[in-house]
Design a protein around this nucleic acid. Sequence first.
DNA 1: TGCGAGTGGAACATCGATGTTCCATAAGGG
DNA 2: CCCTTATGGAACATCGATGTTCCACTCGCA
Lengths: 198, 198
Amino acid sequence: MPMRDDSAAVAETAAAETGTRARTRRAILDAAVALLSTDQTASLGDVAAAAGVGRTTVHRYFPERSDLLAAIGADILDKVAAATERARLDDGPASTALERLCQEFFELGDRLTLMFDVPQFMNWDGWEEETAADAALLRLVDRGRAEGSLDPEMSAEWVQNVLWSLLYSAWEHARSHGAPKHAALTLCLRTLRKAVAP
Amino acid sequence: MPMRDDSAAVAETAAAETGTRARTRRAILDAAVALLSTDQTASLGDVAAAAGVGRTTVHRYFPERSDLLAAIGADILDKVAAATERARLDDGPASTALERLCQEFFELGDRLTLMFDVPQFMNWDGWEEETAADAALLRLVDRGRAEGSLDPEMSAEWVQNVLWSLLYSAWEHARSHGAPKHAALTLCLRTLRKAVAP
DNA sequence: TGCGAGTGGAACATCGATGTTCCATAAGGG
DNA sequence: CCCTTATGGAACATCGATGTTCCACTCGCA
């Protein structure tokens, strides 16, 4: 007899759920990210197995597949927001701040490639609405163009696209060419720096 | 109605199909590319409808879904090879040749995004084996690094990754931001040029 | 330690995609 | 013009993923 997670609904965003529930939820979420980033067609049964829980339990937390994907999406948005804050986009030259952001985003790891690889995410509703993180990045680029530390020919949207693409490339480079992650990040940063320089 | 396609198709299977068969086959292939590039989960029924043929006919040409995907993959490889030849990678400065290649690849259009978006293709066997086009690109980059027209810090594989990523970004930029294709290409070329410059 | 929340697994119903067969019909080339 | 070839559509079988229900079990917390 499920308590109809009113508590969970409330706690969903910030508050801490019951220790057990929160832990299970995270386990499923993390396993799903790890698994889906290597095999986008993985079934819920696979996710359950990877998370070390029963398929029934997965359905208990995420009634439908779309619920799971939405939760992953929300989780990613959270982490993107956190990374953006850590990058302190308003401090120092815009070009330097952009590199800090790139480094922070790089740490998102699997979640990064997931956004590109899983069809569901490319067309997701969640990206539509301009997030605070998006706005901050666009502001940063505009500032950089005004300052003269970023290429004035490139729109903020284009810089954003390039940033994400290079991050994807870096992870792909590490994954398929077996390059160490730090080397991939270095290449990524170097390429980005030159690409957006005036 | 490019002559090139017919000769390529002939060369492909070494068996000249009748005009009707070849035309139907191309219709299915092209419709599949166009459809799958916008909806990776499209069913064979959808593909058939988009191609203006019956579902039965699709199965007649491609018994299994995987056969269709393999055919698309082979078709893409053909077009990549053709584009690479047209770019004359051995002529002139390496950086210029790379830009020519970028322009040629840009013309691949939907097929470009398909390779990234459709899971099946990212892990496909077909990419594994080093194609002549791959080899030519790698040679080009090495030449450029030796000449001093390309960044010596960047491996040929990385440049290749960046090239494809920027192309994907350009198409995505055109698609979602409604930018005209020529503008997207210009941005792409500018970004690539700066990124790989020494 | 005992109660209840949380869990696992089996069994079942459903659904859409896939693949196959068959036949009537349209199309196209000789 | 006729006959081969190609096609469309209906009907059917199959399969895997999904979602649901039920019950026994266990683990954590009071």
